[in-house]
Amino acid sequence: MSSRPDTPALPAFLRIHQYAGLKPGPRLLVTAAVHGNEVCGVAAIQRVMAELDSGALQLRGGTLSFIPIVNPLAHQLGRREGDRNLNRNLRPPVVPQDFEDRIAGPLCRWLADHEVLLDLHSFQGQGKPFAMLGPRNNRGELEPFAHEQAEGLLAACVGTERIVEGWLSTYALGLQRRAERAGDGSRRATLQQDPHYGVGTTEYMRSRGGYGITLECGQHADPEAPEFAYKAILRVLVLLGMVDAEVVAPRPASAPELLQLYEVVDREHEGDRFERAWASFDPVIKGQRIGTRHDGTPVLAPADGRIVFPAVNAQPGSEWFYLARASTRQLG
C-alpha cells in the first residue's frame, strides 16, 4: 500500500507493553486510541505505566497489558479513522484491504490472549462519561455470552453515572434495513452492509470467551477525561485483585442509570437534518420531531426515552442516531 501525501510513512508496528505478575491472576488488556483522535486513554495509560515502572504502583499478580495507541495511523493524522473505522467489522482479515485490516490481525490475537478488556474512548459532543456493556447471558447466534455478572461488575466499578447496553442487537436491526438498500459500491458501503460490521473490540473479545467494556471517558478535549480514564484503570485493577485497594478512591455510592439501546436510525441523504443540536442522552418524548429527511418527511421519536450518539455529519448510509430507554437489568 502506498504512502499518502498527508503523512510521511505508514506506521509499521503496534507498541504493546506488558507487565507479568509473579503470582497468578487475571489477564487484563487496556486499550486506547482505537479512534485516533480519542487520546484521553493514551495519557491515562502512560501515567499508570510510569507508576508501575517507578514502583509507586505494585502489581500483585496476573498479567496486565497495554496498547496505548491501537490505531497509529489515525492517531498520527489526528482524526477518528485512518482508512476506515477500526471499531467496526473487527476480525482477522483473509486478505488485508486497508490499514485497519493490517491492525486487526495482531489486535485480534492480543484480544484473544486476554480474559478482560477495558477499552478507553472519548466522544465529540458535550456530556458526562458513560460505560457500554454487552448482552445478558444467552446461547443465541448473534452474541452468545456467559459472563454477564462479571461484566456488569466491571461496568459498575469504573465510576460512571450512566451505563448503556444493547449495542450489537440494536445494530443488527439497522443492518437488516441497510441490506435492503443498494450501496454505492464503495468499500465503506460494502462493509456497512456486512453482518459483521457491528463487531468492535469488546464484541470480538466476547466472541473469544472473554468479557469487557467500552468506557467513554468524556468529551475529546475535556481536561478531566484523562483523569477519569486513569482512575478507571486503577478501579478495574482493584476489582480484579491485581493491585491494592488503597490506590484509588472507590466509585460513588449512588447506582448508575442503566439504559438499553433499542433502535438505530441511519442518515439516508446529505439533506437529512436534525431538528436541533442534540447531545447524547437528551430526553425525547413519543412523537417528538428529532429530524427531517431531505424530502421533508419528519423523523419522530417512537417512544419516550433518550437520543444517543447523534451524528450531525454522519455519512449517508451510516448511523445517524440511536434511541435508548430505561433498562431493567441488574448489574450484580
Rank of each mutant, 00 (worst) to 15 (best):
G218T: 07
R139M: 07
Y19D: 07
Y197T: 10
F321H: 11
D98Q: 10
G36I: 12
A150T: 02
G271P: 03
P316Y: 08
V238C: 14
F281M: 04
H269Y: 05
P93C: 08
D282Y: 06
G209M: 05
G212Y: 12
A225E: 04
P302W: 01
G41C: 05
L77K: 07
A74N: 06
D113K: 01
E263Q: 15
D194R: 04
R187E: 13
R80G: 10
W167C: 05
L153G: 03
L331F: 05
G134P: 05
G105N: 05
A311R: 15
V34W: 00
V238P: 00
K231D: 14
R181F: 14
C40M: 09
V299Q: 04
V243C: 11
W167R: 10
R187Y: 13
P250L: 04
R27K: 15
S3W: 07
V199C: 08
L52R: 11
R4W: 15
P252A: 12
V95L: 14
E165D: 10
V308K: 03
E203L: 05
I307L: 15
R306M: 11
H294E: 12
R27W: 09
E203C: 09
Y322A: 14
E51K: 11
R251G: 02
G183F: 12
E180L: 15
T7E: 05
E270G: 11
G185I: 11
G305T: 05
A131S: 15
W110D: 02
L323Q: 10
Y197I: 10
S186V: 14
S54H: 09
S327V: 12
G125K: 01
H269Q: 10
R177K: 14
H220N: 12
H114C: 01
E151K: 04
S169F: 07
E268Q: 12
L153Y: 00
G305K: 06
R289W: 02
M242C: 08
P283I: 04
E100S: 01
L153D: 06
A44T: 09
E100K: 06
E275V: 04
R47L: 02
H17L: 11
P135Y: 03
I213L: 09
V243M: 07
A20I: 11
L118G: 00
P223R: 09
K23M: 08
L64I: 03
